[in-house]
Amino acid sequence: MNQPIKGGRGVNALPFVAPSVVILFVWMIVPLVMTLWFSFQRYNLLSPELSGFVGLSNYSFLLTDPSLWIAMANTLLLVGGVLAITVVGGTLLAVLFDQDFFGSKVARLLAIAPFFVMPTVSALIWKNLLMHPVNGVSAAIARALGLQPVDWFGQWPLFSVTIIVAWQWLPFALLILLTALQSLDHEQKEAARMDGAGPLAIFWYIVLPHMGRAIKVVVMIETIFFLSIFAEIYTTTGGGPGLASTNLTYLIYLRALLEFDVGTASAGGVIAIVLANIVAAFLVRSIARNLDA
């Protein structure tokens, strides 16, 4: 099936494909070259007369600056934390919503809803309505239980951001993993049940291996997105207190648009690109394998 039509009468597809390729190429290469170029320059928009080639000093300045390492550590914690919550939670939820129960279709729609909420809305809803230390729901619950309300963004800034992002992306993992799960042959599960396999054994030996590839795809796609988390930090903590919830993306934003330090921000941008590309290489390879199938 779906064999390409042989002998397309010498149809040349290039004019169809070329516009997209050229435009994407420009969109990729111009910022990349400019970022690389600026990363070797001293260039601050506030004092442009001091510009000039400075070699690697932007990089050495950044790499010896503790704030970069704090931001890197925060990035790793944030990515790792949200990944752990969404992959484990998403797998369990996918298994749950794969079953038929009373109103399961409606429940499923409600469960995936958070993914469609824009990041600035979810950040503010959580920050104010839910996590506010005085007027929020969590504070009311804590008081009702006789506990001290938690000042989420003061005491646990990074953890609070992690919760918000995890809430938004749990439905994504659920949606992808559920789709993968629904393609599982139910006769196979039935056969295993006949042979006396318990639900746990079926989950461990049949369901989980079947979902393996989808889980891998979820991990990689989420990682790409989580490296660039921005709006949730921007609207809640502003990276603070101090640098406690500043990730790499936010640090570069601070340098570029608040301190107008183009050189250092660009060096940070190059570091972010390298980081993302390590993940991207794995992702592209895994998708390429599927392209032939």
Partner: peptide
């Protein structure tokens, strides 16, 4: 696959050039 890989570029890597341009 190349098109896909352009999507992997972190936006913050392009923030400075895009803002200036």
């Amino acid at each position: 696959l190349w098109m896909l890989s352009t999507k992997m570029m972190p936006p913050v890597g392009a923030l400075v050039p895009v803002t200036l341009v």
